[in-house]
Amino acid sequence: METGNQNLQKSSSFSFVPEREYSEGRQKLLSWLNQQMKVHLMDGRILVGTFVCTDKDAHIILSTCYEYFNEKDLETGEYRLLGLVMIPGRHIISIHTDVQQTNNQFKPLTNFEETL
């Protein structure tokens, strides 16, 4: 319980930190946040969803994620809605972002949080 409270305080203090100098990599990751992302998996499946979170080991969390069993399904639009998913980095073959949207959208508010 107590540790949870501490984390909460920590995160709230972090979110109000004025803009920090972010390294290039971080900035790139931040720019992809809330963008559509397409992830190819080792088993041939393709997942398309909104990129919301990642970490050092390339665990990727996609929200409102759709699952396609193969490339053909991607064309025909035969999907299964999965919702919020977490993809462990070791199963990822490739990652694509949607360029159109990246160009059009404004940068959303972001913050870093150090958990654990």
């Binding site: 931040l30 809330n34 979170c53 990642t54 050092k56 959303p108 870093f112 150090e114």
Partner: peptide, 20 residues
């Protein structure tokens, strides 16, 4: 992507404001 995530700390989550 894989180059960028190397800059993150161990255990650090990079996420949006409304996602924790």
């Amino acid at each position: 992507f894989f180059a960028s995530i190397k800059e993150l700390e161990l255990g650090e989550l990079l996420h949006g404001y409304f996602f924790g």
